[in-house]
Amino acid sequence: MHGPALAGWLLVALCAATGAYCLLRMRSPVAEQRSAAGGEALMGFGMAVMAIPAAAFGPPRWAWWAYGVVFGAAAVRALWNVRGLWSVRGHGRARAPRSPGRASGHAHHLHHLVGSLAMVYMSVAMASAPQGGAGHAAHAGPTGVPLVTGALLLYFAGYVLRAGLRLAPAPATATVPRSGSGPAVAWGDRAELALACRLSMGIGMFAMLLTM
């Protein structure tokens, strides 16, 4: 029993730290960064609460349904953002080349949509579990649909591997960047830090899905 409890608390610490960092990122002067960080903070803290070992805190069944409603709303918002980006892309396709930033934003909103739907799925599974087994993801037995769980596991495993490769240091080159070539990027807007944040949550999501 000690092993799973320890793993659960480590997962809580990882998700809570990620959520706290995303709250700090919400101070960014860039509106898009603030919006993304807010959604990721909600995801991080939501995962942290879900990962608390059931022996320490056992929420009532209705709390899981409330969780599903909250993350269902987050999924609708992410879907709306994806729809908006597709609409902008469709209207601007004939006028301008594809923007890398816009493509990156589209991929991020899609990932946030999948993450929110995964949280809804786990919340519904917890709420539907037998009364004796209703607990946190770190301690509940297999309660999900194997096909859905397997598909989500494959997605988050692929996302973690892809994000890890993107964070790998690039080979050194002989070119030395010029000083003062552009404005300094605020630490909250650094792409590699945001990616590390999403990588941590992807690992946490994969770990929780393994218990389903």
Rank of each mutant, 00 (worst) to 15 (best):
M1G: 03
M1F: 10
H2Q: 09
H2V: 04
W9I: 07
L10C: 06
L11C: 04
A13G: 14
L14C: 15
A16V: 11
T18F: 08
A20G: 06
C22N: 14
L24A: 10
L24Y: 12
V30M: 09
E40K: 05
A41I: 06
F45R: 05
F45A: 01
G46M: 09
G46V: 12
A48Q: 12
I52Q: 01
I52C: 01
P53F: 04
A54I: 01
A54F: 05
A55G: 02
A56T: 11
G58A: 15
P59Y: 13
P59N: 08
R61D: 13
R61G: 10
R61M: 14
W62N: 00
A66I: 06
Y67W: 04
F71N: 05
F71C: 07
A75V: 00
L79M: 15
V82H: 01
R83D: 08
L85T: 06
W86C: 01
S87C: 10
R93P: 03
R93T: 02
A94P: 06
R95D: 14
R98F: 11
P100I: 10
A103L: 07
S104P: 07
H106E: 13
H106I: 09
L110A: 04
L113F: 04
V114G: 09
G115D: 00
S116I: 05
L117I: 00
V120T: 04
Y121F: 15
Y121Q: 13
S128L: 09
P130E: 11
Q131C: 07
G133N: 11
H139K: 12
P142W: 03
P142T: 05
P142L: 07
P146F: 01
L147N: 02
A151D: 09
A151K: 02
L152W: 05
L152T: 04
L152D: 13
Y155V: 01
Y155K: 12
F156K: 05
G158H: 05
R162N: 06
L165S: 04
P169Q: 02
A174E: 07
R178L: 15
S179I: 14
G180E: 00
G180V: 10
W187K: 07
G188S: 13
G188E: 02
A196H: 03
R198C: 14
L199N: 14
M201Q: 00
G202H: 02
I203W: 12
G204R: 07
G204K: 01
T211L: 13
M212D: 10
